[in-house]
Design a protein around this nucleic acid. Structure first.
Lengths: 181, 181
DNA sequence: GTCTATAGGAAGATAGAC
DNA sequence: GTCTATCTTCCTATAGAC
């Protein structure tokens, strides 16, 4: 039921998906759907919480870690990729939220906290001397996780690339760049 | 009029924005809006065409160029950043399109052509030997332009960073990576 | 070019039977 | 748990006056 809703939210967008669409995709009527959920917004809230909980735990592990910031950044990049792959639907919806309802505003708030924690980590790694200091660390952070997040738009788990390979590719590109060493 | 519509499409999403929302933001009535445009979808089509025309021309320049592919790739990354900054609203909407109407499907088709051209360029640059060959070129292309495209979600032209600086930062990160040289 | 008024339909959500 | 029927609200779009 949640799965059917999420699939439609992703394919058509949350606003363009009606409860009737969800019902039809399950071969039942709207009323049957409303027996299981109290509102369309609640469906969205559940999915967004799934994504935020996973991202929170990935970021918390990196923030609480003891090693060098650059190593913790590498870890959180890898773990983020794994979360995006394992919870792709939920994260995809999270990344598309604009703030149109209380649910969405709350999700955006949680997301901003995560983004700030990641930016702090990048700043730390630059101050440590492990990362280049000639570029604005906040911009680097945005670009780095913009790249990571973008994979929800094209990655397909059934293809040739495993989550592990993908995480390695992302980390290699982000840390060492496109140019042949 | 188009500007007002686009601002709302971005803030609330296309589907969540009604013609009445657009009218109110201009202090007129719905009917006044319909005097200027034939439908809400037509408004979207105009904006998407603006974005696609600009991106097409950036990609065409790189595709038709004669120099090494790696240099043309560098150029198209820079030019893409400039296009995203100069036409941020239009590109933002393009990147959010799902294919819910004929207009959106047509836009997605044009966008896929562009993505394929960029992927070809990355492949060429790898074959040339200028870019690392240990990572899948198609994945690299997706990640690279995923990073580039992600900037529409946070870049603000009135801030401290100029489009030129941003283009340099993106190119530096993409080609040389985060790690201190 | 802008207005009021309204047509026509689709949406979220509920009531109550089975 | 699922149905039919319905309420209410909102939406796109048009007609016709000024």
């Amino acid at each position: 039921m949640l799965r059917a809703a999420v699939a439609l939210f992703i394919r058509k967008g949350y606003d363009a998906t009606s409860i009737d669409d969800i019902a039809k995709s399950l071969n039942v009527t709207k009323s049957a759907v409303y027996h299981h959920v109290s509102s369309k917004e609640q469906l969205l809230a559940e999915v967004l919480d799934e994504a935020l909980d996973e991202l929170d735990s990935a970021v918390d592990a990196a923030t609480r870690g003891t090693g060098p910031a650059s190593e913790r950044l590498r870890d959180v990049v890898r773990r983020s990729v794994e979360v995006l792959v394992a919870h792709q639907s939920a994260v995809t919806l999270l990344l598309r939220v604009h703030g149109n309802s209380d649910t969405e505003v709350a999700a955006l708030r949680r997301r901003r906290r995560i983004d700030r924690a990641l930016a702090s980590l990048v700043n730390e790694a630059v101050e440590e001397g492990a990362l280049r200091a000639d570029l604005d660390p906040d911009v680097l952070s945005r670009l780095l996780f913009g790249m990571v997040n973008s994979l929800v738009e094209w990655y397909r788990p059934n293809g040739e690339i495993s989550a592990d390979q993908l995480a390695s590719t992302v980390a290699a590109l982000a840390f060492d760049g496109l140019v042949r060493a």
